[in-house]
Simulated scan of single mutants.
Amino acid sequence: MPQRKFETISIRTTPDIKQMLRTAAERERRSLASMMEILILDYAREHGLTESGEAKGKSK
């Protein structure tokens, strides 16, 4: 069952970045919000981030 969503993020960006996001979302048949989630989750996995936002295996 999908997680319920309670948080909102609002960002300002350039038209070029927004168009890249729109193009990526269309290619994946996703909404802009869904594409943002995928990109963030991919980044987190690639950089070892946990749900708390801390890198795995690294202390402060």
Results as ranks from 00 to 15, higher is better:
20 M>I: 05
60 K>Y: 12
8 T>A: 12
53 G>V: 06
8 T>M: 08
10 S>V: 14
58 K>A: 15
36 M>P: 00
39 L>H: 01
45 R>A: 05
60 K>H: 12
58 K>Y: 10
9 I>M: 10
29 R>E: 11
29 R>H: 10
55 A>T: 13
30 R>N: 04
41 L>T: 11
10 S>W: 09
14 T>Y: 05
35 M>N: 00
38 I>Q: 03
35 M>P: 03
32 L>S: 04
21 L>P: 04
48 G>N: 09
17 I>S: 11
25 A>Q: 04
38 I>W: 03
48 G>M: 02
20 M>T: 09
4 R>K: 14
55 A>N: 03
14 T>W: 10
6 F>R: 13
20 M>S: 06
33 A>Y: 04
58 K>W: 08
4 R>G: 02
7 E>K: 12
13 T>C: 15
54 E>G: 03
3 Q>M: 09
54 E>C: 02
21 L>R: 02
38 I>M: 05
45 R>P: 00
5 K>W: 02
40 I>W: 00
58 K>L: 15
52 S>A: 11
8 T>F: 08
25 A>K: 07
59 S>L: 12
20 M>R: 11
15 P>K: 11
37 E>T: 08
17 I>N: 14
37 E>L: 11
22 R>H: 12
16 D>I: 03
4 R>N: 08
11 I>H: 03
21 L>K: 03
51 E>K: 12
4 R>D: 06
2 P>M: 08
21 L>E: 01
39 L>C: 06
7 E>H: 15
3 Q>V: 15
16 D>G: 08
6 F>P: 01
39 L>I: 13
49 L>N: 03
16 D>Q: 13
53 G>P: 10
1 M>D: 08
